[in-house]
Write a protein that binds this DNA or RNA. Structure first.
Length: 780
DNA sequence: TATATAGTGTTTTTT
DNA sequence: ACACTATATA
């Protein structure tokens, strides 16, 4: 593109940001103000107008998905091959650098990356090794102290100097032991990736020079969420060229708990004194009502850079607020609304997003969507890669790739069960410790290990042999085949097959899924390697795998939703104690903590393009008991004229505590309203979902029958349950469910909640569900 | 050594 | 509510 083409697509402020290519630049970009657009056009300008070579440009994004998106957009507007522009996250960037120079820091290039679970396992081990009275300390707390230290680039000796009290000293000792263990295992945790890159640059000026020469122009997205270590990294890289452009919004800083340093943005101008500042305040995303609500909420924060977003879009609909008796009804409402929206043809499932504060809240929604056969995807939450069977198999791969990885060896030395007990492992470990060698190395010298008897020794030899075979295969097999061999040769698959329970079947499915991912990796990479595969799955988050093309309702935590936008957004669980969470309300520094929560609310509100709905429950199950939940202060901070309170009209600002008769009547009305939506219309909708638009593919079913039924084959299914079954099937019939597959109807019972049908599914066992929503289809 | 059971604590949020 | 740990038992 030429100059005019690039500039014509931008407003004045955006143009300013693109034209200012030299020197430090801070772009204060409000939510939805087109910051990605600016970054993309800036890259295009650098390349097409200024003639900068693509490989001299580095862009850092918050997620891999954002990186990919940016690369794609640059690709479409530039004349040049943009492939060699580096667009990556901090962590991926650091790994790429470290793989090249790890030996300078005393690591091998095949170092392993430890995730949060691995960190915990390692810390538990460190606790055990550590004599003395650590009983009162928690691994979690120590890990978080260490992580915090690393975010601030505080090494063990500095930590020791800063923390001289009893617990400080203990923590310092644990920090030291933890780091030693990591290094001996040739492993780094997430924080180490950043810290070690900084150390590399500081200790090896020639290496720093190399990379400074490479990156003449550096751009950083989501700058408000960088921590001290990341900022140091940027300063080092940009020290020579001085061309550092950061884009951020202090109002969207929501990762303080992870070390994000809001000072980085508030004082950028002080640190880089000749820095230019550009403000982007025109919002292109949301309607006026939504934007006003967002402005009103964030206005309650002190210590922010004053700015007010505006839009040329019209006011649009008011922000809807609905309150329900419990979380169950809240979920029914949201589910029913989305179902009827899609049925009416106004939107697709993928236009809707459900946001919540904690991952635990997703379960209720999941249940509803499952029963209603609405395609959905929960992003984040229980990580696929943290499932036991996945971690087990990956542990095998890791020990193949990195023989110093004792943590992985320990994990799978007796998995599946091969009769190697704790006592034997302890002796092996003692021998390895004494000789200063890894467990793998010790395995090669079994005959010399004292105390290991004939039986135990032969079992260990067998294990060592197995590993040797796998290692040999790793030399020539692609990753997915190596994975299959591993699952077979170790007997892992066999064991699960023999177990033959619902759970073991699900685990087998997961293993299959892992192999699929490996195949995808093998196919998509120019030079696939085992290390590369392991690295990819450690650094790729759930959100990164999201395909825009598939049409499903998306469920996120508010954190995970950052940087995304949706036409129709539901913010759920708007309750004091949940959001803002009780931890922040009762913190030592409530003001600060609540402000962070408020920024989170701001992020949530500004995700919405056309319609925003806030919901909450009067009572909610919290850790086992039912708690009364007041309406979130963030709802109350929105002026009433911006809110649509629904037909039952509960004014959030003056709700009577205790609830008199009035209140109870209104509750009842509210409940009914929820039911109405859910009952009649809902059923019709699930049918329309079945008969066409849905692209939902059930991951639990393979091959035929995995997709929804073909258009036109929907059953006539009368809704009135009077007389016969009224559902197109009866007791004894073979039926099919989209998730559970085929099963036999055992019982049909009519209650005041409608017809409850009990089905004995072939691969899931007996399930009881509401016939109205189960959408069972009779098989012939 | 492996398994069943009772008891314990735990959670915001994530690369 | 749930997962994880320590303990008792075969």
């Amino acid at each position: 593109m030429n100059e005019n083409e690039i500039l014509s697509q931008l407003n004045d402020r955006q143009q300013e940001a693109v034209l200012q290519t030299e020197g430090p630049l801070l772009i204060l970009a409000g939510a939805g103000s087109g910051k990605t657009r600016v970054l993309v056009h800036r890259i295009a300008w650098l390349m097409d107008v200024n003639g900068v070579r693509p490989w001299n440009i580095l862009a850092i994004t918050f997620t891999n998905k954002a990186a990919e998106e940016m690369r794609r957009r640059v690709e479409t507007i530039t004349d040049l091959e943009s492939g060699s522009v580096w667009v990556s996250t901090f962590h991926s960037l650091c790994v790429r650098i470290l793989r090249r120079h790890a030996d300078l820091l005393g690591y091998s290039r095949s170092f392993t990356i430890y995730d949060t679970d691995d960190q915990m396992t390692l810390m538990k081990r460190v606790f055990k090794e550590h004599p003395g009275d650590l009983r009162s300390m928690k691994e979690r707390a120590v890990l978080s102290a260490i992580s915090k230290a690393k975010d601030e680039l505080t090494d063990v000796s500095a930590f020791r100097l800063e923390n001289k009290d009893f617990y400080g000293e203990k923590t310092a000792a644990l920090y030291e032991a933890y780091q030693r263990n990591l290094k001996e295992s040739n492993a780094m945790d997430f924080d180490d990736l950043i810290v070690n890159t900084v150390r590399l640059f500081e200790q090896h000026p020639e290496v720093l020079d190399l990379w400074q020469e490479r990156f003449h122009y550096i751009m950083v997205d989501e700058y408000q969420d960088t921590n001290t270590a990341q900022f140091r990294l940027l300063s080092l890289l940009a020290a020579k060229s001085g061309n550092l452009c950061v884009v951020g919004d202090d109002d969207q800083s929501i990762y303080k708990f992870r070390g994000a340093n809001i000072r980085n943005i508030l004082s950028f101008e002080k640190i880089f004194r000749e820095a230019s500042v550009v403000r982007l305040e025109q919002n292109y995303r949301s309607t006026g009502m939504i934007l006003k609500a967002a402005n009103e909420v964030i206005r309650h924060n002190r210590g922010r850079k004053e700015k007010t977003l505006w839009t040329e879009r019209g006011d649009g609909e008011k922000v809807r607020f609905r309150r329900f008796d419990n979380a169950f009804e809240e979920a029914e409402f949201v589910c029913g609304e989305i179902a009827s929206d899609v049925r009416s043809g106004n939107s697709r499932y993928g236009d809707h997003a459900i946001l919540y504060r904690t991952n635990a809240q997703s379960r209720l929604f999941e249940e509803k969507f499952l029963l209603a056969n609405i395609p959905y995807k929960i992003v984040g939450g229980v990580n696929f890669y943290s499932r036991k069977e996945i971690k087990d198999l990956l542990a095998y791969l890791r020990m193949i790739a990195n023989d110093a990885d004792d943590l992985s060896v320990r994990r799978i030395i007796n998995v599946p069960k091969r009769g190697i007990g704790a006592a034997t492992v302890a002796r092996l470990d003692a021998y390895a410790q004494a000789g200063g060698i890894s467990l793998c190395d010790a395995l090669a010298e079994i005959e010399r290990i004292p105390g290991i008897s004939g039986a135990a020794a032969s079992k260990l030899t067998g294990f060592a042999g197995l590993i040797a075979v796998l290692r040999e295969k790793a030399g020539y097999l692609p990753v997915h085949e190596l994975l299959r061999e591993t699952a077979d040769l170790t007997g892992y698959t066999k064991e699960l097959e023999l177990e033959n329970t619902d759970e073991s079947k699900a685990r087998l499915e997961n293993i299959e899924e892992l192999m699929n991912k490996a195949s995808q990796y093998d196919a998509g990479e120019e030079t696939p390697t085992l290390t590369g595969f392991l690295e990819e799955i450690s650094l790729i988050a759930d959100i990164d795998t999201l395909e825009d093309s598939d049409d499903r309702v998306l469920l996120f935590t508010l954190h995970a939703a950052k940087g995304l936008e949706f036409p129709d957004v539901y913010m759920t669980g708007m309750e004091e104690g949940l959001f803002p969470g009780s931890l922040s309300i009762h913190a030592d520094n409530p003001q600060e903590e609540i402000e962070e929560e408020r920024r989170l609310a701001y992020v949530g509100i500004t995700r919405a393009m056309n319609r925003l709905t806030l919901t909450c429950a009067r009572s909610r199950m919290v850790r086992g008991d039912i708690m009364p939940m007041p309406i979130s202060r963030f709802v109350r901070e929105i002026p009433k004229e911006l809110l649509d309170l629904g037909s039952t009209g509960e004014a959030p600002a003056r709700r009577k505590p205790g609830g008199g008769l009035d209140e109870r009547l209104r509750s009842a009305l509210m409940t009914d309203a929820g039911r109405l939506t859910f009952g009649k219309e809902f059923h019709e909708d699930t049918e329309s979902a079945y008969s066409g638009r849905s692209t939902y593919r059930n991951p639990y079913l393979k091959g035929q029958g995995a997709a929804g039924r073909t258009p036109g084959s929907a059953p006539p299914a009368a809704r009135t349950p009077s007389g016969g079954s009224g559902f197109g099937y009866e007791t004894g019939d073979l039926v099919r469910h989209i998730k559970f597959g085929q099963g036999t109807v055992r019982e049909m019972k009519y209650t005041d909640r409608g017809c409850m049908v009990t089905v004995d599914f072939q691969s899931w066992g007996v399930k009881k569900m509401r016939a109205e929503v189960a959408n069972l289809v009779k098989c012939n």
